[in-house]
Design a protein around this nucleic acid. Sequence first.
DNA 1: ATTGACGTCTCAATATCTGAGATGCAAGTC
DNA 2: GACTTGCATCTCAGATATTGAGACGTCAAT
Lengths: 239, 239
Amino acid sequence: MDNSSGVGVIDKAVMVLDTLEAGPTSLAQLVAATGLARPTVHRLALALVHHRLVSRDMQGRFVLGRRLVELAAAAGEDRLIASAGPVLLSLRDATGESAQVFRRQGDARVCVASAERPVGLRDTIPVGTQLSMKAGSAAQVLLAWEDHERLLEGLRGARFTPTVLAGVRRRGWGQSLGEREPGVASVSAPVRGPSGRVIAAVSISGPIERLSRQPGRIHAEVVVQAAQQLTEALRKSND
Amino acid sequence: MDNSSGVGVIDKAVMVLDTLEAGPTSLAQLVAATGLARPTVHRLALALVHHRLVSRDMQGRFVLGRRLVELAAAAGEDRLIASAGPVLLSLRDATGESAQVFRRQGDARVCVASAERPVGLRDTIPVGTQLSMKAGSAAQVLLAWEDHERLLEGLRGARFTPTVLAGVRRRGWGQSLGEREPGVASVSAPVRGPSGRVIAAVSISGPIERLSRQPGRIHAEVVVQAAQQLTEALRKSND
DNA sequence: ATTGACGTCTCAATATCTGAGATGCAAGTC
DNA sequence: GACTTGCATCTCAGATATTGAGACGTCAAT
């Protein structure tokens, strides 16, 4: 494989990062592994330290830095949001309701993607909105597959019960009526990461009058399908 | 803050990565955000794409790349291993037994750090060793706090039972006698990440003759303390 | 058909990067 | 204590890699 990108300094800096992937590495070892001149490696490594892409351990060895974890988190978020767009548009059109993707963030859930029903009575949840983990079908789904203790902690003060969460796990989806806001119904299903763990929830929401008092009966199938499409899309873009 | 590292190309490349942290960005937007000349940004961005630190979405916009996730995973592993060393040495000395840290990897657990008892009858588990998730106190601890379905899946074919795992959750530690290997006893406790989730297990292991048929009764306290020290060390190095 | 915005490419000029060699320090050996 | 070795850090003359103005191609809007 041609390893030259056309920008020599970046090629060399990446050689340093690649070498550090194996673990803490002294300057001498970096020189040996990269084949570069010692002052060159020294200067590049210090530049990467300056930008927190690399740091130094107690023995002065170079190690990969925290900034990489920050950038990686942003990269992961990008992929979820990129994949969610078309899936939510399809779901909105199939159901005629607004559709969203939520992620958990501590004691709240955050809307990270949204496709709104364009006309008439509709539930509007702008991207970035933080909602409670104590109410709503998305909260149920984000909680249902947590470990026992976190599940019990999450249920404290919640508008739903352990029995409801057991139902969510059995059926693979959740529904709510007026939990987050009077008059609003919703249906949600889990998005799973490559390891199978629930990382997000796909939801539709709208007025009870239109979604009925059993919104899951009508809409669960397409919501579950949309969530599975998103799970598949994320798995594929890992390859 | 002085933003110049002494290597101009790296400074500029990092400006591009920093800008992309906010999400998919066109070339024009990168030019505006970085203040660099258009061909410069173009060349640097293509070089980062070449090394998979950046990629392009369906609209041709630049996005943070998958290589960052790979490097971040390595960075995380580095920190666990770096923090584990002194903790395991203390634990080995306090108990007189070999001490290890295990992480889960699919259907196996892997020893990522180890401090061996130097003399006499001892249990040796070299770093990198893969062991079963179906036997041993570390397997119990890595499994006990999983969600209900993953917990049930993990119990299939296991040498321990749901009742044993409930005890692990209640006490905060697990013990085993001859599960992984006849004549070997072990005690393990959970290491938790910043979100509180179990990410690794601290263990001691040795002959039943020395550890007794109730190794937890004697050693659980220091194993739990060692695991909590490691949890704290990881939390601190996030700041 | 024309215009404007954007992405991509070229290449002369020069600013940056390189790396040989020097220096400082710590650890090991005698 | 003196000496040697190995490693990290620093300097700076010279080479070259990088820069960015300008050209070109494409596409969407008018």
